[in-house]
Design a binder for these strands. Sequence first.
RNA 1: GGAGAGAUGUCUGAGUGGUUUAAGGUGCACGCUUGGAAAGCGUGUGUGGGGGCAACUCCACCGCGGGUUCAAAUCCCGCUCUCUCCGCCA
Length: 434
Amino acid sequence: MIKQLSFITYNMITLKNIRENQDLISKKLKTKNFEVNKIEKLLNKDSDWREGLVLVEKLKEKRNSASKQISILKKENKPADDLISEMKNVSSKIKEIDSKNVELKIEIDNLLLDFPNIPHDSVPLGSDESSNKIIRTWGEKPKFEYEIKSHIEISEKLNLLDFKAGSKISGSGFPVYIKNGAKLERSLINFMLDMHVENGYDEMFPPFLVNSDSMQTTGQMPKFIDDMYQIPKDQLFCIPTAEVPVTNYYRSEQLDESELPVKFAAYSACFRREAGSYGKDTRGLLRLHQFNKVELVKFVHPDNSYNELESLLEDAEKVLQSLGLHYRVIELCTGDLSFSAAKCYDVEVWSPYENKYLEVSSCSNFESFQANRGSIRFRSSKTGKMEFVHTLNGSGVATPRLLIALIENYQQKDGTIKIPKALQRYMNISAIED
RNA sequence: GGAGAGAUGUCUGAGUGGUUUAAGGUGCACGCUUGGAAAGCGUGUGUGGGGGCAACUCCACCGCGGGUUCAAAUCCCGCUCUCUCCGCCA
């Protein structure tokens, strides 16, 4: 059952909206641990900018009409020297004010790019993850009558992963999948893509390197540039998720209202520097610099983006359900919400050996946040105007922790791994035995 | 990597310094006409931003960014992308 959520209609990080709803936005951004004095700073620059704008536009108006006069005078062979010399002064004044204004506007735009999205009214308040809410759990924790092994131990014994070779070739956090491990990884990707396509998503295979405009649209830049692998010579960045290229598929485009919602499922490798998280979850597949993920991205009508979020979440959950893995769904509180998200659910799969839930998916509604940054619009039949679509995405799902859960949950006493039914036709075997 | 050609509104396409506030066509919307439709005729038709915040008005936008000029779609410089050819290459 999809629950219909209430939402405020003008919930947007735009200069105009901040100008007109300063108090409301300040209140909402505070819940996301945003330093709200930046709003004051922004609006001060904004009023300076607008002051200059009024001035310069009046001068431009004057110049435009004088230009027409000069043109007429010249055609009639009459002198226009006075007017020309007057306009010389006007023009230099315009240049002066304009350059100040451009500078101000760049400062304003840069400030604005650091503003996080506004949390949705339904998001629970809280400053950190301790205020997150458990929405539901599915399945049960499996019971083992023998001592269970970690995914690292099992995958070493069965020759599925080679962490040592990975560190030699690239460094830590770049595992090599071998033999049945490689096949299992490939099977999972195919299995998930097939499932989502069957559920109405269009498959997409995007580029793994993108430019800075793309990173800016989805919100990775400018703030999180240090989390990205960069190729400076070509000014390209390795994608941290397929969300980036897939969302940017429609950057600067106008969609037809009738074609909404547009839904994509895309596999990509994901690259994350994980700067600042050294020493945390470094074992095995828990936290990697490169991993595989199938991502779901939706472009939807603003009127029903919250219904679309619920169904996106369900589509991600189906992966774990089909594989028979116990998991829970968490609703993130305002303080734990990512920079770009207005609302977000995490799906966490159970790891028996780690004895905890591991995040395998994050399903978010970005509302118009990304669409505004990247100008992704449609013409509303209701208003006749161009409006921003709402974008959503969710992992469906990331493979490393899924692999951990699979290996650990399906391990047998004899050290083998059973293959869940849904995967058997991809693996062509029912168990990994040696 | 080298050489050449190109980029104008929904599309097509004109425009090499000044009534271009971007012609003409096409598409779209409305009206007239018609028994109805087509054709024909007429009117309107982009995006973003600013000021009044309503009718209105001004500014910017001809791939992107600079420059020259009183004035740039138009001239100059740099860049991006597309196409053709050559080279290299899975």
